[in-house]
Design a binder for these strands. Sequence first.
DNA 1: GTCTATAGGTAGATAGAC
DNA 2: GTCTATCTACCTATAGAC
Lengths: 202, 202
Amino acid sequence: MWVMRTDERITLAMAELLRRQGYAATGVNQLARAADAPTGSIYHHFKGGKREVAEAALRSTGAAYIRLLPLLLDPYEDLVEGIEAAFAAAGEDMRGTGWANMCPVGTVTGEVADVEPRLREVAGEVMAGWIEEGTRYLAGRGLSEPGARSAMYALLAALEGAFILARGLRSVEPFAAAGRSVAAYVAALGDRAAEPGGAIIR
Amino acid sequence: MWVMRTDERITLAMAELLRRQGYAATGVNQLARAADAPTGSIYHHFKGGKREVAEAALRSTGAAYIRLLPLLLDPYEDLVEGIEAAFAAAGEDMRGTGWANMCPVGTVTGEVADVEPRLREVAGEVMAGWIEEGTRYLAGRGLSEPGARSAMYALLAALEGAFILARGLRSVEPFAAAGRSVAAYVAALGDRAAEPGGAIIR
DNA sequence: GTCTATAGGTAGATAGAC
DNA sequence: GTCTATCTACCTATAGAC
């Protein structure tokens, strides 16, 4: 793509700002500057203003993020090993951006879920999509359906929490520990699935 | 305490507002209303204004939260069982408050770590204190020191992440899964510690 | 579709009477 | 120490020329 449409630039700039400073602290003028667009263009493309831009940003980054799961785990024949490696990679990525690289969906949900019901809804839809797609993927890697679903909840919680802890502590240690924890859980699920009679997993 | 000092009311009100709507969305006038104090009193007690109030709120809730760890886990002779129960309790607590009951430290860290360096520092200090105290507690429950530390990182990450997922999805399922995951990790750490030669734990 | 100018409101912060 | 009135600056959003 040699050119990027104005509305795409606006959405992308919003996603970046949400990751770094959240929704409330992000101003429309700041967004316009970041997207290299005049203020009026934002309201031309997004009649709902700032909030509608944020909704678009959450949806688009949500779709992009879930694609990382197979991308990071496919190379590992051993799923448990892959999970530890994926968490480690996320930690290094965050360190490389000066501890700024957070998930906008998690940031916004924590920040303004009570005050902006529409954003909470969109974030919830994105998260639900993550769970569904992730469950399918993990089931394809050998976990039972309920086991895969539970593992996906645990994985996402550990990941979102590791983002926050790493950002506060400026350390990759939360990612390392969270990765080991989720890996241990998946390993335990796998062991149980491999037992005779198999797949009794809560 | 029959009376509560003005500065205490302000700090407490700020903590509550931070949990529900974050730092940037919380206005000084709103804070004054919530604390039942005039705007000027805030600047009388906190020369640094809004940001200094937020610092005090993070420190005080940080100290209060870590006390919950022994409170929730002491009743359980089996640590692994206790961890699952504690996560379940946190989830129910959150459901009871209409999915609003989040940790202000995590919220603020996710929201304005880049934009308000002082708040990031304070949040980091609070988190580091959680790790230290939590590591001591878990070591007292039989884990090796490095195992306890790693478990504490994993526990906090899973908990902060579960807050976010539960808030977005309006479901306690993230807490259930996160609890099972951390419990599985602690169980694995314990098994290894019990092996002959013992306590080879990363 | 792009961009400028600006309206109307609210923010954080302060001054100073009590 | 408490409280009111108010300042300046910035916010979201809009109107309308190009």
